[in-house]
């Protein structure tokens, strides 16, 4: 066996960045560091939202005073909001497919549509929060209010940050600063957007559709 066999050989010019050509750079993992960083960030976000959802779950049916979920949720309204956010994932992935084809006009169209759908979702959340406050539910009212506003508020902040990133992409593309070689930028922001969507899938089911227990417990939570 020859000792000259070197697996590290490649026909790359020195200093050339494969990521700029839509290719993954040569790393130990075989994927770009930026993409790996986003996925590890999303993995850590699972723990953050897991904590918030668990807290909501722990406090279910433990509020001493109303309003409670049963008499305050508007399921048809939230269902439409959920549908809007779900469809924004479709427009996001269509935007990514557009830049992969080099179709910048459709890229801007789908990115704008995604940002618009996200804005509709956030507008709906602001309306929902306002109506809840008018009905007497604030963060200080009871355990339900505290855990509900913190959980959905954190998610809303994530959606808002996503909208800002999407609009930045639209501006970059309009100024010609988002060539097809930077497809990975769109892909990474798309991953963040889809993650926000999957978190809402869980929130919609666990928080809105599965009701609190009828019998309320007033006993404190204690470590067994």
């Amino acid at each position: 066996m020859a000792t000259t066999t070197t697996p590290e050989v490649l026909d790359e010019s020195p200093g050339e960045n494969p990521a700029e050509h839509g290719m993954s750079p040569v790393t130990n993992t075989g994927v770009s560091n930026e993409k790996l960083a986003m996925w590890s960030f999303l993995g850590s976000e699972c723990l953050l939202f897991g904590a918030l959802i668990s807290t909501y779950f722990l406090y279910r049916g433990r509020s001493l005073t109303g309003p409670t979920p049963k008499n305050i949720y508007d399921i048809p309204y939230t269902s439409i909001s959920s549908f809007v956010l779900l469809m924004s994932s479709l427009t996001m992935v269509l935007a990514l497919a557009a830049i992969q084809r080099g179709d910048h006009r459709r890229l801007r169209l789908w990115l704008t549509a995604t940002a618009l759908l996200g804005t509709v979702f956030i507008g709906g959340q602001v309306y929902e929060f306002t109506s809840f406050i008018h009905e007497g539910l604030t963060m200080r009212t009871n355990l339900f209010g505290s855990s509900f506003f913190v959980l959905t508020g954190f998610h809303g902040v994530h959606v808002t940050l996503g909208i800002m990133m999407l609009l930045s992409l639209v501006l970059m593309s309009a100024r010609g600063r988002l060539p097809q070689s930077k497809v990975q930028v769109v892909e990474i922001i798309g991953l963040y957007w889809h993650f926000v969507d999957v978190v809402w899938i869980v929130i919609f089911t666990v928080v809105y559709l599965i009701p609190s227990p009828v019998a309320h417990s007033t006993r404190p939570l204690q470590i067994r």
Binding site: S24, V31, G50, S54, L58, L221, R224
Partner: peptide
């Protein structure tokens, strides 16, 4: 690449394990 899948699944599984333990501790 499956490395990416492992990163995400690890986050999900870790979150489930940790919070199920918390739920069990709190009864």
């Amino acid at each position: 690449n499956r490395v990416l899948r492992r990163f995400f699944v690890t986050g999900i599984v870790l979150a489930i394990i940790i919070y199920v333990i918390v739920f069990l501790l709190l009864g």
